[in-house]
């Protein structure tokens, strides 16, 4: 049972990376990240893992907020457009379909100048708050 946890709380990994939650815009979930050295890859630019993490969080949260539930990521596809050093990233995610216990979301990541850095889509399994997790 997972009803002892708040489905709106942030994960430990969210805090470990220093991600911030911003106010929603329309139905978009917005999260942001100020880039630090620990986010860099072997070439000294932003690691793609940051893109994947931001999209996973923003898209999952968009489903969570629609259904007041927990989510488990089933799959995710990300296209990367920028591989360079950035100051700040903003990720906007929204749910596009929820059918039964499956939800889908799409999202985009922009840098501090509004350049489109990455986009992604993901499918999530929906676990009702208080429901039992069966993987």
């Amino acid at each position: 049972m997972i009803n002892e946890r708040n489905y709106n709380s942030h994960s430990a990994f969210f805090n470990h990376l220093g991600i911030k939650r911003e106010p929603n815009e329309n139905k978009n979930v917005i999260i942001s990240l100020n880039m630090k050295e620990e986010h860099c890859n072997e070439s000294g630019v932003l690691s793609n893992g940051i893109y994947y993490t931001l999209l996973d969080i923003a898209l999952g949260t968009s489903i969570t907020e629609m259904k007041n539930c927990f989510t488990i990521t089933i799959n995710m596809h990300v296209q990367v457009y920028e591989n360079r050093y950035v100051e700040q990233l903003t990720c906007k995610g929204r749910s596009i379909n929820i059918t039964g216990n499956i939800g889908s979301g799409v999202g985009d990541i922009f840098d501090e100048n509004g350049n489109h850095c990455a986009s992604g889509s993901a499918t999530f399994k929906i676990i009702p708050a208080g429901g039992e997790r069966k993987y």
Partner: peptide, 22 residues
């Protein structure tokens, strides 16, 4: 480690994806 977990108490999807990319 604990700092890599999601709210379900399992490894975060972003960590899986980061490892695969690496």
């Amino acid at each position: 480690k604990n700092e890599l977990l999601n709210t379900n108490g399992t490894l975060h999807g972003g960590v899986y994806a980061s490892i695969i990319d690496f």
